[in-house]
Design a protein around this nucleic acid. Sequence first.
DNA 1: GCGACAG
DNA 2: ATCTTGTCGC
Length: 260
Amino acid sequence: MNGPPKLARPDLVPDPDRGRETMEAQQRDIASEARFADDFEFDPATIIDGPLATPDEDPPLVAGIDQAFLDDRVISAIVVSRGGEVVERVYAVTDLSIPYIPGLLAFREGGPILDAVAELTSTPDLFVFDGSGRIHFREAGIATHMGVVLDVPSVGVAKSLLCGTPTRSVEGLAAGERVPIESDEDVTATAGERIGYAVQTRQYDSPNRHINPLYVSPGHRVGAATAADLVLALADGYKLPEPTRRADAYADEAKSLVDD
DNA sequence: GCGACAG
DNA sequence: ATCTTGTCGC
């Protein structure tokens, strides 16, 4: 009952109708305001999503955010859980204004996400977004943009790599393994920085087929290594971390509920 | 002009 | 992202 996080930077809320140059300029501002290093209250070692080892544990509140689409409307769902137990679920239906443009995702889905955040009655300790954070052309992916606007710890979890270069092959990694992603020529403002990790949360036993890794990057107030640790701790037998899976399922549920 | 890119 | 059943492999 603490209420949703306030808009720490209302001036940086993504505005869809402003033109590419302006949007990119704002992303540079976002990147300069972002902190890609650990700066949060909870103990990362207590993060878990599943049966608690000891009954007296009190894991942090983690919010998973995902969206589902219905014509030109988007359903933004947020599921907040603590140690695997769902604490709250909220969603918002918002009209979409611009199409998906690689690099400008936050301007399409950011506003809708903030609409859902406003519905929260709890205050999550960590936000897990669907998409990149620092792994972005201007180091301002949607996880970073939302993290800075709300000034909350956040991480980005993407299913494919937007930009940056893995330091080695990411094919067929074993579950639990990770490979650093470094900034390259596609990432302006930095060079050779460790902007995220390819994280293998799950893998098949057979040599035939293999699962691709997740691409995890810092959103805001979380370092790259910690972001990878957190995602591994939040995964439970599936490729996607549990908070994301719950938000995904809830978004679909709300979608069919809203559908007409 | 070509390439190439989260959701 | 979304349209969608079965089906390959352990």
